[in-house]
Every structure is written in C-alpha cells, then in structure tokens.
C-alpha cells in the first residue's frame, strides 16, 4: 500500500496510470513559469505547479492533470490555470474516454490573485464544456493540502469525485474562518473538528464525493477506472434533483443553538445510525453505510 497523500503529483501520475503511459504536455523542460512570481522575486516552478498530459488508464486514453501541493499549496496562478483550461479544451477537441484531475490546491494563488481568480472561473467553464460533451471529468482528492477555494467549487462541477478519508474538500480553510470570526466559530487547531467538517468521511456520508477510498494509490486507481464511462449529464432534471437535495440538507441541519456537534447532528438527520461513531470507523465500514 502506497500512501497517495505522501506522493508528489508526478509520483501519483506514475503510479495511478498505466505504467509508463503518461505523456506530458508543456513539461518542465519547456520552462513555462509564472512571470508574476518572478517579478515578486519568489521562486517559481518549471511546470507552475501542475503536470498535464495524456495517458492510459486500464488501456483507455485519458487526459490528466495533477496539481503539486508542495509548490505554493497547489495554488492556481495564470499559467497553472491556463494549463488546466488548455487540457479541457483539448479534451473537447480530441475526446478521450475521461479527464482526470488529481486536485490538490488551496485555491487561487494569492501572489497573483486577480489572474488566478479569473483563471479558476475559466477552468470551471472549460470543465463544464467537457462535461456537456459527454466526456466524464473525474476529480481525485487525497493530498495533504486538500482541495479548497475555487478548486473546491471546480471539483463539485465534475461528474465524479473520489476522496480518501484523509482528503479534505471545502471552500474556506479553518484558519481563514478563525481569522474572520474567531476561534469559537472554528478552532483551526482542532483536528477532529476539521475532519468532521471537511474530511472525506463527512463528504462521503453527505454524498459530496461519489467514492471513498483508503489513502492508497491503488485504491484511487481502481476508483478512477470505475468512474470512466459514468458521465452524468448536467440537465435541468439533474440540477432540480441536486437543488432538492441541497435544500433538504439545509433544513436537516438543526438550528445553530442545538445541543451537540453539528456534524454528528447532520449525519443523524441524514439517517446515519450511530453517527457519533463515524470518526472512529474504518473506510470499509463507511463504504458499507452508503449504497452507490
């Protein structure tokens, strides 16, 4: 078992895809770096923190992107974002069996925030174009930096989300919320609270991810293989269903002053027996709690 969380973006590509099949576009040798970081005197990366290309997964052609959390937390800058947009546009043209996004990102890269914000919205639009063309987009989340900010929105625009129990998916990080509304609102040092609020187990129980896997590259590979061919067209009927689910969830969460932990109350309201046990349960036990 190889920990997905501990792998670099390139290690994940090497281990998750068919052996030796990854062919990179705009590889580090081309040295396409961020001009903005250079202006700021901040070290840059020759791939601007994301590797993109084509590969085979279980013998089928897929296009793939992997964000490198070790470089600026996987933050999306102008070049990084444009590489993702280019990959999506190319998928629209060449029609691979699926697009895989190995997401690990704090969201917009604050050093070039204005460009990053526009770039994330361009990624969203390009991703939705790919999805509308019937090509499934699969997002894998299991890196140490999680998937936050604009990339947390991008992830939920995809057809299929795979998470490990150590993965985190959300919008604003706990530190940002604590800085804004105080430690009583969100104690960013309370690891258990962070996991109950944003972690893979919670996202699995609420249906925010479609598959929950162990922190194991092979498990991610299997889940990605299963997701190919499962396009979910974004139709009016599908969006009405999504809307009803989210409204129901909003009403299911008890009022702010209810006794007990919010996450546990929400899980209970969603019909999870022994909700207070959830944080202690193994992935296999959780997988069994939700029929796919």
């Amino acid at each position: 078992m190889i920990s997905y969380a501990e792998c670099s973006a390139r290690e994940r590509l090497a281990l998750l895809l068919d052996a030796g099949s990854f062919h990179e576009w705009l590889p580090p040798a081309e040295r396409i770096t961020s001009p903005h970081l250079a202006q700021l005197g901040v070290p840059s990366a020759f791939d601007d923190g994301v590797a993109i290309g084509r590969a085979a997964l279980d013998g089928r052609e897929v296009f793939v992107a992997a964000q490198e959390g070790a470089f600026m937390g996987g933050g999306v800058g102008e070049v990084h974002g444009a590489k993702l947009v280019g990959l999506m546009r190319r998928a629209l043209r060449d029609r691979p069996a699926a697009v895989l996004l190995l997401a690990e990102s704090g969201g917009v890269r604050l050093h070039e925030a204005n460009a990053g914000l526009i770039a994330v919205s361009e990624v969203m639009r390009a991703l939705l174009d790919v999805r509308a063309a019937g090509i499934p987009v699969v997002v894998l989340i299991g890196g140490a930096n999680g998937c936050f900010g604009g990339m947390g929105i991008v992830a939920r625009c995809a057809d299929h989300v795979v998470m490990s129990d150590v993965g985190r998916l959300a919008m604003s990080g706990p530190e940002v919320i604590e800085a804004s509304h105080g430690v009583e609102e969100f104690d960013s040092r309370d690891r258990a609270l962070i996991w109950r609020t944003t972690g893979g187990k919670h996202r699995w129980l609420t249906g925010d991810c479609d598959a929950l896997v162990e922190d194991d590259v092979a498990a991610f590979r299997e889940a990605a293989m299963a997701a190919i061919g499962k396009a979910k067209p974004s139709t009016l009927a599908a969006l009405e269903q999504e809307h009803a689910l989210l409204v129901q969830r909003l009403h299911a969460l008890p009022a702010h002053d209810a006794e007990g932990d919010d996450a546990t109350l929400l899980w209970r309201a969603l019909g999870i027996a022994d909700a207070q046990q959830v944080p202690e349960l193994a992935v296999a036990a959780l997988q069994a709690m939700r029929a796919n």
């Binding site: 939705l128 959300a170 919320i177 509304h181 974004s234 996450a263």
Partner: peptide
C-alpha cells in the same frame, strides 16, 4: 460566507450548483 456551518453543509457544492445552473 466564512462560517463553519456553511463549510459543513458544503458551501462549495452549493456554489458549484449555482454556477452549473447559470451554465445550463
């Protein structure tokens, strides 16, 4: 909204839903 409750509910999913509705 920078609130833990919104994160717990999945604010990113609600915003993606709004984006997907506009896109549709």
């Amino acid at each position: 909204q920078l609130r833990r409750r919104d994160e717990l509910l999945g604010i990113n999913r609600a915003m993606a839903h709004l984006g997907a509705a506009i896109d549709l």
